[in-house]
Simulated scan of single mutants.
Amino acid sequence: MDKTSGIYIAGHRGLVGSAIVRRLEAAGYTNLITRTHSEVDLTDQAAVEAFFQAERPEYVFLAAAKVGGILANSTYPADFIRENLQIQTNVIHSAYRSGVKKLEFLGSSCIYPKLAPQPIKEEYLLTGPLEPTNEAYAIAKIAGIVMTNSYRRQHGFNGISLMPTNLYGPGDNYDLQSSHVLPALIRKFHEAKVRGEGEVVVWGTGAPLREFLHVDDLADAAVFLMENYDEEEIINVGVGEDISIGDLARLVAEVVGFEGEIVFDTSKPDGTPRKLLDVSRLFDMGWRPKFDLRSGIEDAYRWFVENVG
Protein backbone atom coordinates (compact mmCIF):
# COMPACT_ATOMS: atom_id res chain seq x y z
CA MET A 1 0.00 0.00 0.00
CA ASP A 2 1.22 3.48 -0.86
CA LYS A 3 0.53 6.32 1.58
CA THR A 4 -1.94 7.75 -0.95
CA SER A 5 -3.65 4.45 -1.87
CA GLY A 6 -7.44 4.44 -1.56
CA ILE A 7 -8.09 2.26 1.48
CA TYR A 8 -11.65 1.34 2.48
CA ILE A 9 -12.21 0.36 6.10
CA ALA A 10 -15.59 -1.37 6.30
CA GLY A 11 -16.97 -1.01 9.83
CA HIS A 12 -14.78 1.96 10.74
CA ARG A 13 -16.91 2.88 13.76
CA GLY A 14 -16.61 -0.54 15.37
CA LEU A 15 -13.99 -1.80 17.80
CA VAL A 16 -11.74 -3.29 15.09
CA GLY A 17 -12.41 -0.83 12.28
CA SER A 18 -11.77 2.24 14.42
CA ALA A 19 -8.46 0.76 15.61
CA ILE A 20 -7.41 0.07 12.01
CA VAL A 21 -8.23 3.70 11.10
CA ARG A 22 -6.11 4.92 14.04
CA ARG A 23 -3.21 2.68 12.98
CA LEU A 24 -3.34 3.75 9.32
CA GLU A 25 -3.57 7.45 10.22
CA ALA A 26 -0.62 7.12 12.60
CA ALA A 27 1.40 5.51 9.80
CA GLY A 28 0.68 8.43 7.46
CA TYR A 29 -1.91 6.93 5.12
CA THR A 30 -3.91 9.87 3.77
CA ASN A 31 -6.64 8.42 1.55
CA LEU A 32 -8.84 6.48 3.95
CA ILE A 33 -12.37 5.77 2.73
CA THR A 34 -15.14 5.31 5.30
CA ARG A 35 -18.93 5.21 5.24
CA THR A 36 -21.43 5.05 8.08
CA HIS A 37 -24.30 2.55 8.04
CA SER A 38 -26.70 5.33 7.04
CA GLU A 39 -24.48 6.25 4.09
CA VAL A 40 -23.97 2.67 2.82
CA ASP A 41 -25.94 -0.24 4.27
CA LEU A 42 -23.56 -3.16 3.75
CA THR A 43 -26.44 -5.65 3.85
CA ASP A 44 -27.87 -3.94 0.73
CA GLN A 45 -26.27 -5.52 -2.34
CA ALA A 46 -27.13 -2.69 -4.77
CA ALA A 47 -25.88 -0.01 -2.38
CA VAL A 48 -22.56 -1.79 -1.83
CA GLU A 49 -22.05 -2.34 -5.56
CA ALA A 50 -22.78 1.33 -6.31
CA PHE A 51 -20.34 2.44 -3.60
CA PHE A 52 -17.49 0.28 -4.92
CA GLN A 53 -18.06 1.30 -8.53
CA ALA A 54 -18.05 4.98 -7.54
CA GLU A 55 -15.13 4.99 -5.09
CA ARG A 56 -12.89 2.25 -6.58
CA PRO A 57 -10.82 1.62 -3.42
CA GLU A 58 -7.51 -0.20 -3.98
CA TYR A 59 -7.42 -1.97 -0.61
CA VAL A 60 -10.19 -3.16 1.72
CA PHE A 61 -10.15 -4.04 5.41
CA LEU A 62 -13.40 -5.96 5.95
CA ALA A 63 -13.96 -5.30 9.66
CA ALA A 64 -17.74 -4.78 9.48
CA ALA A 65 -19.74 -7.47 11.28
CA LYS A 66 -22.57 -8.08 13.71
CA VAL A 67 -20.84 -9.22 16.90
CA GLY A 68 -21.79 -10.04 20.48
CA GLY A 69 -21.20 -12.26 23.49
CA ILE A 70 -22.82 -15.52 24.58
CA LEU A 71 -26.17 -13.93 25.47
CA ALA A 72 -26.54 -12.01 22.20
CA ASN A 73 -25.42 -14.97 20.09
CA SER A 74 -27.83 -17.32 21.86
CA THR A 75 -30.77 -14.92 21.65
CA TYR A 76 -30.44 -13.68 18.05
CA PRO A 77 -28.77 -16.46 16.00
CA ALA A 78 -30.84 -15.69 12.88
CA ASP A 79 -29.71 -12.05 12.93
CA PHE A 80 -26.08 -13.07 13.39
CA ILE A 81 -25.95 -15.48 10.46
CA ARG A 82 -28.08 -13.39 8.09
CA GLU A 83 -26.40 -10.02 8.59
CA ASN A 84 -22.86 -11.36 8.56
CA LEU A 85 -23.45 -13.44 5.43
CA GLN A 86 -24.97 -10.43 3.69
CA ILE A 87 -22.20 -8.00 4.67
CA GLN A 88 -19.28 -10.19 3.67
CA THR A 89 -20.91 -11.53 0.48
CA ASN A 90 -21.70 -8.02 -0.74
CA VAL A 91 -18.31 -6.53 0.13
CA ILE A 92 -16.16 -9.39 -1.20
CA HIS A 93 -18.09 -9.67 -4.47
CA SER A 94 -18.17 -5.92 -5.11
CA ALA A 95 -14.48 -5.60 -4.20
CA TYR A 96 -13.65 -8.22 -6.82
CA ARG A 97 -15.91 -6.65 -9.47
CA SER A 98 -14.46 -3.16 -8.94
CA GLY A 99 -10.82 -4.27 -9.22
CA VAL A 100 -9.67 -4.04 -5.60
CA LYS A 101 -5.97 -4.99 -5.36
CA LYS A 102 -6.25 -6.75 -2.00
CA LEU A 103 -8.91 -7.47 0.61
CA GLU A 104 -8.37 -8.52 4.20
CA PHE A 105 -11.22 -10.46 5.81
CA LEU A 106 -11.43 -10.29 9.61
CA GLY A 107 -12.78 -13.52 11.06
CA SER A 108 -12.86 -14.80 14.64
CA SER A 109 -11.32 -17.57 16.72
CA CYS A 110 -14.84 -18.95 17.32
CA ILE A 111 -14.61 -20.57 13.85
CA TYR A 112 -12.61 -23.41 15.38
CA PRO A 113 -14.11 -26.62 16.83
CA LYS A 114 -15.30 -26.36 20.44
CA LEU A 115 -12.93 -29.11 21.57
CA ALA A 116 -10.01 -28.36 19.25
CA PRO A 117 -6.55 -29.37 20.52
CA GLN A 118 -4.79 -26.50 22.27
CA PRO A 119 -3.21 -24.25 21.20
CA ILE A 120 -5.36 -24.05 18.07
CA LYS A 121 -3.49 -24.28 14.78
CA GLU A 122 -4.93 -22.83 11.58
CA GLU A 123 -5.35 -26.30 10.06
CA TYR A 124 -7.85 -27.33 12.78
CA LEU A 125 -10.60 -25.42 10.96
CA LEU A 126 -13.57 -27.70 10.09
CA THR A 127 -12.21 -30.70 12.01
CA GLY A 128 -14.99 -30.91 14.62
CA PRO A 129 -18.30 -29.52 15.97
CA LEU A 130 -18.57 -25.83 16.84
CA GLU A 131 -19.55 -24.26 20.17
CA PRO A 132 -23.39 -24.30 20.00
CA THR A 133 -23.87 -20.86 21.60
CA ASN A 134 -22.19 -19.03 18.70
CA GLU A 135 -22.61 -21.54 15.88
CA ALA A 136 -24.57 -19.15 13.63
CA TYR A 137 -21.89 -16.44 13.84
CA ALA A 138 -19.06 -18.95 13.40
CA ILE A 139 -20.61 -20.52 10.31
CA ALA A 140 -21.06 -17.08 8.76
CA LYS A 141 -17.38 -16.32 9.37
CA ILE A 142 -16.32 -19.70 7.97
CA ALA A 143 -18.37 -18.89 4.87
CA GLY A 144 -16.43 -15.61 4.56
CA ILE A 145 -13.12 -17.48 4.66
CA VAL A 146 -14.27 -19.98 2.04
CA MET A 147 -15.65 -17.18 -0.13
CA THR A 148 -12.39 -15.21 0.04
CA ASN A 149 -10.41 -18.32 -0.92
CA SER A 150 -12.87 -19.28 -3.66
CA TYR A 151 -12.56 -15.87 -5.30
CA ARG A 152 -8.77 -16.28 -5.13
CA ARG A 153 -8.95 -19.71 -6.80
CA GLN A 154 -11.52 -18.92 -9.47
CA HIS A 155 -10.79 -15.26 -10.19
CA GLY A 156 -7.23 -14.68 -8.93
CA PHE A 157 -8.64 -12.21 -6.39
CA ASN A 158 -6.08 -11.30 -3.73
CA GLY A 159 -7.89 -11.88 -0.44
CA ILE A 160 -6.45 -12.95 2.91
CA SER A 161 -8.23 -14.00 6.12
CA LEU A 162 -7.17 -13.15 9.70
CA MET A 163 -8.52 -14.96 12.76
CA PRO A 164 -8.17 -12.73 15.83
CA THR A 165 -8.56 -14.05 19.35
CA ASN A 166 -10.82 -12.28 21.91
CA LEU A 167 -10.45 -8.52 21.51
CA TYR A 168 -10.84 -5.58 23.86
CA GLY A 169 -9.84 -1.93 24.10
CA PRO A 170 -10.97 1.61 23.15
CA GLY A 171 -14.33 1.63 21.37
CA ASP A 172 -15.52 -1.66 22.84
CA ASN A 173 -19.18 -2.49 23.49
CA TYR A 174 -20.03 -2.18 27.20
CA ASP A 175 -23.73 -3.06 26.98
CA LEU A 176 -24.19 -5.93 29.44
CA GLN A 177 -26.85 -7.50 27.20
CA SER A 178 -24.55 -7.87 24.19
CA SER A 179 -20.93 -7.37 25.27
CA HIS A 180 -18.08 -9.85 25.48
CA VAL A 181 -16.62 -10.98 28.79
CA LEU A 182 -13.82 -8.46 29.38
CA PRO A 183 -15.79 -5.24 28.75
CA ALA A 184 -18.69 -6.73 30.73
CA LEU A 185 -16.36 -7.29 33.68
CA ILE A 186 -14.96 -3.77 33.45
CA ARG A 187 -18.47 -2.33 33.55
CA LYS A 188 -19.68 -4.60 36.35
CA PHE A 189 -16.73 -3.89 38.63
CA HIS A 190 -16.76 -0.16 37.89
CA GLU A 191 -20.47 0.20 38.65
CA ALA A 192 -20.17 -1.91 41.80
CA LYS A 193 -17.29 0.29 42.99
CA VAL A 194 -19.23 3.50 42.27
CA ARG A 195 -22.33 2.20 44.07
CA GLY A 196 -20.34 0.81 46.98
CA GLU A 197 -21.67 -2.71 46.43
CA GLY A 198 -20.09 -5.63 48.25
CA GLU A 199 -20.11 -8.23 45.52
CA VAL A 200 -20.05 -8.75 41.76
CA VAL A 201 -21.60 -11.78 40.09
CA VAL A 202 -19.64 -13.32 37.21
CA TRP A 203 -21.25 -15.76 34.77
CA GLY A 204 -20.10 -19.38 34.87
CA THR A 205 -17.57 -21.24 36.96
CA GLY A 206 -14.57 -19.04 36.24
CA ALA A 207 -12.67 -22.08 34.96
CA PRO A 208 -12.67 -21.50 31.16
CA LEU A 209 -9.41 -20.21 29.72
CA ARG A 210 -9.39 -17.30 27.29
CA GLU A 211 -6.79 -15.33 25.35
CA PHE A 212 -7.15 -11.55 25.04
CA LEU A 213 -5.62 -9.23 22.45
CA HIS A 214 -5.72 -5.44 22.69
CA VAL A 215 -7.47 -4.10 19.59
CA ASP A 216 -4.61 -1.69 18.80
CA ASP A 217 -2.32 -4.74 18.60
CA LEU A 218 -4.79 -6.40 16.22
CA ALA A 219 -4.83 -3.26 14.07
CA ASP A 220 -1.04 -3.27 13.99
CA ALA A 221 -1.08 -6.93 12.92
CA ALA A 222 -3.79 -6.23 10.34
CA VAL A 223 -1.70 -3.55 8.63
CA PHE A 224 1.44 -5.71 8.93
CA LEU A 225 -0.30 -8.65 7.23
CA MET A 226 -1.89 -6.49 4.54
CA GLU A 227 1.65 -5.48 3.60
CA ASN A 228 3.45 -8.80 4.17
CA TYR A 229 1.08 -11.77 3.75
CA ASP A 230 -0.42 -13.13 0.55
CA GLU A 231 -1.36 -16.75 1.27
CA GLU A 232 -4.71 -18.51 0.97
CA GLU A 233 -4.33 -20.15 4.37
CA ILE A 234 -5.96 -18.30 7.27
CA ILE A 235 -3.61 -16.81 9.85
CA ASN A 236 -4.19 -16.56 13.60
CA VAL A 237 -3.67 -13.26 15.43
CA GLY A 238 -3.24 -13.38 19.20
CA VAL A 239 -0.76 -13.19 22.06
CA GLY A 240 -0.08 -16.91 22.61
CA GLU A 241 -1.07 -16.87 26.30
CA ASP A 242 -4.38 -17.37 28.09
CA ILE A 243 -5.93 -16.73 31.51
CA SER A 244 -8.85 -18.24 33.40
CA ILE A 245 -12.04 -16.17 33.60
CA GLY A 246 -11.69 -16.30 37.37
CA ASP A 247 -8.18 -14.82 37.29
CA LEU A 248 -9.30 -12.31 34.67
CA ALA A 249 -12.13 -11.16 36.95
CA ARG A 250 -9.67 -10.70 39.82
CA LEU A 251 -7.28 -8.75 37.56
CA VAL A 252 -10.06 -6.45 36.31
CA ALA A 253 -11.27 -5.89 39.89
CA GLU A 254 -7.72 -4.92 40.85
CA VAL A 255 -7.33 -2.47 37.94
CA VAL A 256 -10.76 -0.92 38.58
CA GLY A 257 -10.23 -0.74 42.32
CA PHE A 258 -13.16 -2.92 43.39
CA GLU A 259 -12.45 -4.50 46.77
CA GLY A 260 -15.59 -6.57 47.35
CA GLU A 261 -16.34 -10.24 46.77
CA ILE A 262 -16.49 -12.00 43.39
CA VAL A 263 -19.30 -14.58 43.13
CA PHE A 264 -19.48 -17.10 40.28
CA ASP A 265 -22.97 -17.99 39.03
CA THR A 266 -22.46 -21.62 38.03
CA SER A 267 -26.00 -21.86 36.60
CA LYS A 268 -24.84 -19.71 33.66
CA PRO A 269 -23.00 -21.20 30.64
CA ASP A 270 -19.22 -21.31 30.43
CA GLY A 271 -18.96 -21.66 26.67
CA THR A 272 -15.87 -23.28 25.18
CA PRO A 273 -13.54 -24.69 27.90
CA ARG A 274 -10.38 -23.27 26.36
CA LYS A 275 -9.60 -21.20 23.29
CA LEU A 276 -5.90 -20.42 22.84
CA LEU A 277 -4.57 -19.71 19.37
CA ASP A 278 -1.29 -21.03 18.03
CA VAL A 279 0.24 -17.80 16.73
CA SER A 280 3.61 -19.24 15.73
CA ARG A 281 3.07 -18.52 12.01
CA LEU A 282 2.50 -14.82 12.67
CA PHE A 283 5.30 -14.59 15.26
CA ASP A 284 7.68 -16.33 12.84
CA MET A 285 7.04 -13.45 10.42
CA GLY A 286 8.46 -11.08 13.03
CA TRP A 287 5.30 -9.53 14.51
CA ARG A 288 4.71 -9.22 18.27
CA PRO A 289 1.97 -7.54 20.37
CA LYS A 290 2.91 -4.44 22.34
CA PHE A 291 0.38 -4.67 25.22
CA ASP A 292 0.55 -7.10 28.12
CA LEU A 293 -2.84 -7.90 29.65
CA ARG A 294 -2.62 -5.61 32.67
CA SER A 295 -1.50 -2.54 30.74
CA GLY A 296 -4.11 -3.30 28.09
CA ILE A 297 -6.91 -3.49 30.66
CA GLU A 298 -5.68 -0.26 32.24
CA ASP A 299 -5.88 1.40 28.81
CA ALA A 300 -9.37 -0.01 28.17
CA TYR A 301 -10.57 1.10 31.62
CA ARG A 302 -9.30 4.66 31.05
CA TRP A 303 -11.27 4.79 27.81
CA PHE A 304 -14.38 3.39 29.53
CA VAL A 305 -14.26 5.99 32.33
CA GLU A 306 -13.81 8.85 29.85
CA ASN A 307 -16.41 7.70 27.31
CA VAL A 308 -18.95 5.43 29.02
CA GLY A 309 -18.67 5.32 32.79
Rank of each mutant, 00 (worst) to 15 (best):
A26S: 13
V194Y: 00
R56D: 07
H93E: 14
Q45S: 14
E58F: 06
R195S: 12
S161F: 15
K102N: 03
I70F: 04
Y168G: 04
L24C: 02
V67D: 13
L225I: 05
T127G: 01
T272I: 08
I92M: 10
T89V: 10
R56L: 14
A136W: 10
S244Q: 03
H214P: 09
I235C: 02
I7Q: 03
Y137F: 12
R82H: 13
G271A: 10
Q88D: 07
D265G: 05
F52D: 04
Y59H: 12
L182A: 02
E261D: 15
S94G: 04
V16N: 03
A192T: 04
G286C: 09
P132N: 06
G69F: 01
L85C: 14
A65M: 13
E211S: 05
P129G: 08
L277I: 09
T36Y: 03
S5I: 03
T30N: 11
A192Q: 02
E55L: 07
R13D: 00
Y96A: 09
I145N: 10
S108V: 04
L24H: 01
I87M: 13
P77W: 14
L103E: 02
E122P: 01
V256Q: 06
T30M: 07
Y59K: 10
N228G: 01
M147E: 11
I186Y: 00
D44I: 06
I81P: 13
T127D: 06
F51D: 15
W303V: 05
A27K: 10
A300C: 09
R250I: 00
V202K: 10
Q88N: 12
R23N: 12
Q154T: 13
P57Q: 07
T89H: 13
M285D: 09
E233G: 01
Y229E: 05
R195M: 11
E25Y: 00
A219T: 03
K114I: 12
V237R: 05
L115R: 09
H93N: 15
A63K: 04
G286M: 10
P183F: 01
V237L: 07
D292K: 04
V215R: 02
E83V: 13
A46H: 11
T34Y: 00
R250S: 11
E135W: 12
I70N: 08
G286N: 09
I87Y: 05
L277C: 10
A136R: 01
I92A: 09
T165W: 08
T43Y: 06
G169R: 07
I81Q: 14
L15S: 01
I235F: 08
R274H: 14
R302D: 08
L176M: 10
I70M: 14
P183H: 01
D247T: 03
A300Y: 09
T266F: 03
